[in-house]
């Protein structure tokens, strides 16, 4: 009797899981499937498999418009903002974990609460300021903004991790005459690879996928990112759905790659850093 009940429960769980997995994967399948069709194929056969794999869409995406330029812009902005924010956050997290001082917890709490302030609230003053100092349509302006927005979560994650590193390790190093910078560089950073990788993935995904700020601060075609680019792309190629889908697919590949490369660290980093109980 009990065996039978378990069997039904297991089957039920499998069915739920299959449904959710299908639901999660279908839009991706739809995108790839459509991207591989020729325009004529799409018109006659909208939802079936492609009759012949049409790879010319891939070529056409890169030839069309400023796509390669947008791609480059996205890479530049993602790499620079993620790296700069990482360095600044490492320094701040070091101060917030390795020194004891009166305002320490207050500062950390304040930083945590900033995580919840959405960028749309700062948008108008930042825009007015950046227009005045002529930093709209420039890498500098937007990298500065992205760096700032990435900092609260980065500082929080690294601080909680640094605090979990046993004090004795640091102490023996300082007795050996290591100064603070060397302790950070030679001991803490190598020990913190899982949370650092987690941060890089989460932050890179965020910058790569960011739309609102890019829309406002990078309006010139030469400075557009892929995310703002596709909205242009979509309206310009509205009739050519397969080409649009190929564009979307190409945009997605780098992030899927990053996620896979770091997946091993990613879940461990979440456990060890942000959710330590």
């Amino acid at each position: 009797m009990k065996m039978k009940r378990n069997y039904f429960a297991l089957a039920g769980r499998q069915i739920m899981m299959v449904l959710l997995a299908a639901l999660s994967i279908y839009p991706v399948f739809f995108m790839v499937n459509t991207a591989l069709k020729s325009k004529a194929d799409y018109i006659n056969n909208r939802f079936g498999f492609p009759q012949a794999i049409a790879l010319q869409n891939f070529k056409e995406v890169f030839l069309g418009e400023n796509f390669s330029r947008w791609f480059l812009n996205s890479i530049i902005l993602t790499v620079t903002s993620v790296l700069i924010s990482l360095i600044i956050a490492l320094l701040a997290a070091f101060a917030l974990s390795r020194y004891r001082f009166r305002m320490r917890e207050g500062i950390l709490k304040f930083v945590i609460s900033l995580m919840m302030v959405p960028p749309v609230i700062m948008l108008i003053p930042l825009f007015i300021f950046m227009s005045r100092v002529k930093l709209t349509n420039s890498y500098t302006g937007i990298v500065l903004i992205y760096t700032g927005l990435l900092l609260p979560f980065s500082i929080y994650l690294l601080t909680t991790f640094f605090r979990s590193v046993p004090h004795s390790i640091i102490e023996s190093a300082s007795i050996d005459g290591c100064n603070s910078i060397r302790i950070l560089k030679n001991i803490l950073i190598p020990m913190s690879m899982p949370p650092i990788m987690t941060l890089i993935v989460i932050n890179a995904l965020w910058v790569w996928n960011e739309l609102l700020l890019a829309l406002i601060f990078l309006q010139k075609d030469n400075f557009k990112t892929l995310m703002t680019g596709i909205t242009v792309f979509k309206s310009r190629y509205n009739i050519d759905v397969p080409l649009t889908m190929m564009g979307l697919f190409v945009i997605t590949i780098p992030m899927v790659l990053i996620y896979f490369l770091a997946q091993k660290y990613f879940i461990r980093g979440l456990v060890s850093g942000s959710l330590k109980e």
Partner: peptide
Amino acid sequence: FLLPAALVIGFIYLFPLVK
């Protein structure tokens, strides 16, 4: 150690919130 973070956060969060 805190200075760079304080400068950037001040500029991206605090200054706009007042403004």
